[in-house]
Design a protein around this nucleic acid. Sequence first.
DNA 1: AGAAAATCCTGCCGGC
DNA 2: TGCCGGCAGGATTTTC
Length: 298
Amino acid sequence: MPELPEVETVRAGLASHVIGALVKEIKVHDSRSLKRNFSGPDGFIKELTGESLQGVIRRGKFLWLPLTATRAVVCHLGMSGQVLVRSKDFGEDKLTRISLRLEKPTGEEIEMRFVDQRLFGGMQIDDLVDTGDNSPAGYFPEGEGRSLIPTSVSHIARDLLDPNFDAGLVVSKMRKRNSGIKRVLLDQNLLSGIGNIYADESLWRSRLHYDRPAIEISARKLRELIDVSQEVLREAVERGGTSFDEQYKNVNGESGYFSQDLNAYSRAGLPCQRCGSAIKRQAWANRSSYFCPRCQRR
DNA sequence: AGAAAATCCTGCCGGC
DNA sequence: TGCCGGCAGGATTTTC
């Protein structure tokens, strides 16, 4: 699934349901969805049961739910992960790997389900550490913006929609990279939140070819690319993300609508909305790149 | 150190 | 109907 807009849609949905909820019972149906968990499913269940969920915070494509001042549940959706919130008597969801039975402050019981086809995503409990910069570590408008981040997320750069995202700094770092601009855009250690879809969309809007070396793009053009990327991500958040199939859903199991607004991704053979040329799809780094061969020249 | 490739997985779809 | 190859929105680890 999921890039920043999809993960943000999930975050907001989760926040509206689970903040303050008490974890009553946990079922780990597939322990492969527990990442870096050295104490096994039993350790996960033991630590989390009886805790209450203090918030839902996002940086880039990572989510975490603080339990205490020092520990949080980290959740990453990988390629095909979903988090669904179901009422007590809702039927089973296929491919549910982990489920948490929760009691809301109102007394209502709900179930939070981590569903994942490909098992690239997962959950773990992790230490919270200080970011050191005295700014909120991630996006959490419903609560307190503390500068605490899970150890396993601390290497991820601030995302493009973070108020503390430093565009000037990122541009200067990008200019030193010899790789193609798309590879650079996808480097979560440099700037986070962008994946294959929004990389292609941002490059299309900026009229940049995906393989153009970042080092030869002007600072001004890179700044424009960042501005455009932020615009694309904001629009996609407004539309509830991009859904092509059953893979991506919000916490209520509903699709997003940004796929209607795509100009490049998944549009091979269709006319470019700017110049009418057929959009091309090229194999790239074990996946695909979509671009307009006329508007986006190397 | 930076860059690129390999790796972790399952389900679905289209073609034969 | 069934088998097979190709495909999928990502991050981490390994290799050069």
